[in-house]
Amino acid sequence: MVLNSIEKLIEKYDNAETTLEEEAQLRAYFESDDVAPHLEHYKPLFQYFSLSQQEQYTKDVPLKPKKTQLYQWISVAAVAVLMLGIFIPNWQGESKSFANLTPEEQEAITQTMEAFNLVSLGMNKGKQQLNSLAMVSENLNQGIEEASRLSEFSKTTNRIFKNK
């Protein structure tokens, strides 16, 4: 009678349908010395669960307070410099046009614009390469989806024709 109920509980345990009380009954049965020979292979499993419940972590976990980082202050300073760079020229009142600048200033502005154009061209080429890579990634993902559908189709046809 007891062996019969234990076998039923093991079947429920394998199907993940047991309650905590039923699992305690199983644990108690497998901790005893009179376990049926055909159920011996379950004994290490329940012994492991009993031992793992007794384990404790005894080391201290050091909790360090967060330090303010230098990078945070550098970013604040950078924002302040940018804001000053934007607002100070507007306070002076007079604005200069490109024609009113000295030839050295005009040359510096022209060279700066050329450098920005070169950087822009390089970034646009990189962006095009990333777009190509994204398209390859999308096609690869579509191929994977199609392969999984093919696998599902194969499983279904095997079920229909009762092939394993």
Rank of each mutant, 00 (worst) to 15 (best):
P44R: 07
L45Q: 04
E145Q: 11
F30Q: 00
G93A: 07
L133W: 09
L101C: 05
F98W: 01
S148V: 15
F116L: 05
K162A: 15
N163M: 04
T156F: 14
K155F: 15
F153G: 07
Q72V: 14
Y29R: 01
E138N: 03
L84A: 10
E55M: 13
T68V: 14
G93D: 05
E104G: 08
A99V: 05
I86T: 06
D14L: 02
F116W: 06
D14I: 01
Y42E: 07
A36C: 05
R159L: 10
D14G: 00
I160A: 04
T68D: 11
R149W: 12
E31T: 14
E31W: 02
N131F: 09
S52E: 14
V119T: 06
G85M: 02
F161L: 08
E23A: 08
N90D: 04
E152T: 15
Q129H: 09
E138Y: 10
T18Y: 00
I10F: 00
N131H: 08
L130K: 11
F30S: 01
S95K: 13
R27S: 08
H41P: 02
D60T: 15
K162E: 05
F87T: 03
L101G: 09
E22K: 00
A80V: 14
L150Y: 11
A77L: 09
N90H: 07
W91M: 06
E107I: 01
V2E: 06
W73F: 11
A77E: 12
Q47R: 10
A80G: 11
E146W: 07
Q53W: 12
Q69G: 14
